[in-house]
Each structure stands twice: as C-alpha cells, then as structure tokens.
Amino acid sequence: MSDRPDPHLRELVLLRRVRDRIDRDYAQPLDVEALARGVHLSAGHLSREFRAAYGESPYSYLMTRRIERAMTLLLRGDMSVTDTCFAVGCSSLGTFSTRFSELVGMSPSAYRRLAAGEGNGIPACVAKQIRRPIRNREAGPTRTDLA
C-alpha cells in the first residue's frame, strides 16, 4: 500500500477550496483564472472538474451565490436593486438582472416589491417557493406569472 494520497481525493480538496473561496469572497472580483491560480490548476481543468463535482461551472456557482445574497438584501427592503447589484459583487446591472430572473423566476424589482409587502396574503408555503433560488436554469417561463 502506498503512502501517496489519492490524486482524485487531492483534486476534490482543491475543488472544495475553490467553492469555499467563492462562498466567502463572492462580493469580490473573482474570475475562473484567479480561482484556478489559487489552487495551481489551469482554468480549463478547474472548470471541467468543478462542473463534474458540483454540477455547474465555477462562474455559475459564483453567480448563484451572489443572487442568493441579493435575495436576502432585497428582502430587507432598505437597498435599491442597483445598490444590491454592486453590494454582491456584480459590475453590470443588466447581467445581474438577467441572472436573477433566471434563478428566481422574476426580476429583482418584482422580487423586491413582493418582499416589501405586495406579497401579503400569499400562503407561507407559496412565498417560500417563490423566494427559493433555482439552480442550473430550472426556472421556467410560467414562474414569472407570480410577480
């Protein structure tokens, strides 16, 4: 039996470090190249292995994390959509709004209105479903009817 660590397990540890960094530093400017450099992998290899391990690319995971945080900030109701966009690390309001709509099923402004009380009277089980981010582009076009 060899004392050398299993290369697959070593790579999983590196992928977990990348995911942890995204979770921790989501509001910072991050790109796949910088994430890959941090664990001494090429950007292409990191992207392939990250997708294989977690079901989505590092960039998609980062954007999902940013949108989840944006949902929390919008629920508070004290920040504009634009301020929320920049607070979570997005540099483009258009990209932020598009990704938010893909993951949540409604625009950030519609979500903010819902959170501000226009959703009063909606049963808690429905509100919970509306407020749950959807991963991997699961949101269908019918979900926007809830806004």
Results as ranks from 00 to 15, higher is better:
Glu56Asp: 12
Glu56Pro: 11
Glu56Asn: 10
Ser57Lys: 07
Ser57Val: 02
Ser57Thr: 15
Pro58Arg: 00
Pro58Trp: 00
Pro58Thr: 01
Pro58Gln: 03
Tyr59Arg: 11
Tyr59Leu: 12
Tyr59Met: 13
Ser60Pro: 02
Ser60Ala: 15
Ser60Phe: 00
Ser60Glu: 12
Tyr61His: 08
Tyr61Asp: 06
Tyr61Leu: 13
Leu62Gly: 03
Leu62Pro: 09
Met63Tyr: 09
Met63Asn: 09
Met63Ala: 10
Arg65Phe: 01
Arg65Glu: 08
Arg65Cys: 14
Arg66Gln: 11
Arg66Trp: 03
Arg66Asp: 05
Arg66His: 01
Ile67Cys: 14
Ile67Leu: 12
Glu68Cys: 14
Arg69Tyr: 06
Arg69Asn: 11
Arg69Gln: 15
Ala70Met: 06
Met71Cys: 15
Met71Lys: 09
Met71Ala: 14
Thr72Cys: 11
Thr72Asn: 03
Thr72Arg: 02
Thr72Ala: 13
Leu74Ala: 03
Leu74Trp: 00
Leu74Glu: 03
Leu75Glu: 15
Leu75Phe: 06
Leu75Tyr: 04
Leu75Arg: 13
Arg76Asn: 15
Arg76Ser: 14
Arg76Lys: 11
Gly77Phe: 04
Gly77Asn: 08
Gly77Val: 09
Gly77Lys: 06
Gly77Met: 03
Asp78Tyr: 02
Asp78Gln: 07
Asp78Asn: 13
Asp78Ala: 14
Asp78Pro: 10
Met79Gln: 11
Met79Glu: 12
Met79Gly: 05
Met79Ala: 10
Met79Arg: 13
Met79Cys: 10
Ser80Gln: 05
Ser80Phe: 07
Ser80Asn: 10
Ser80Val: 07
Ser80Arg: 06
Ser80Ala: 14
Val81Thr: 13
Val81Leu: 07
Thr82Pro: 07
Thr82Tyr: 05
Asp83Leu: 12
Asp83Gln: 12
Asp83Arg: 05
Cys85Thr: 04
Cys85His: 00
Phe86Lys: 00
Phe86Trp: 10
Phe86Val: 02
Phe86Ala: 01
Ala87His: 07
Ala87Asp: 09
Ala87Glu: 14
Ala87Met: 13
Val88Met: 02
Val88Asp: 04
Val88Ser: 01
Gly89Gln: 00
Gly89Ser: 04
Gly89Cys: 08
Gly89Trp: 00
Cys90Asn: 10
Cys90Ala: 14
Cys90Thr: 01
Ser91Arg: 13
Ser91Val: 15
Ser91Trp: 11
Ser91His: 11
Ser92Lys: 05
Ser92Phe: 07
Leu93Cys: 12
Leu93His: 03
Leu93Ser: 08
Gly94Pro: 06
Gly94Val: 15
Gly94Arg: 09
Gly94Ile: 11
Thr95Arg: 06
Thr95Ala: 13
Thr95Cys: 09
Thr95Leu: 08
Phe96Pro: 08
Phe96Asp: 06
Phe96Lys: 00
Ser97Leu: 07
Ser97Lys: 04
Ser97Phe: 04
Thr98Val: 10
Arg99Glu: 12
Arg99Ser: 11
Arg99Thr: 14
Phe100Ser: 04
Phe100Ile: 06
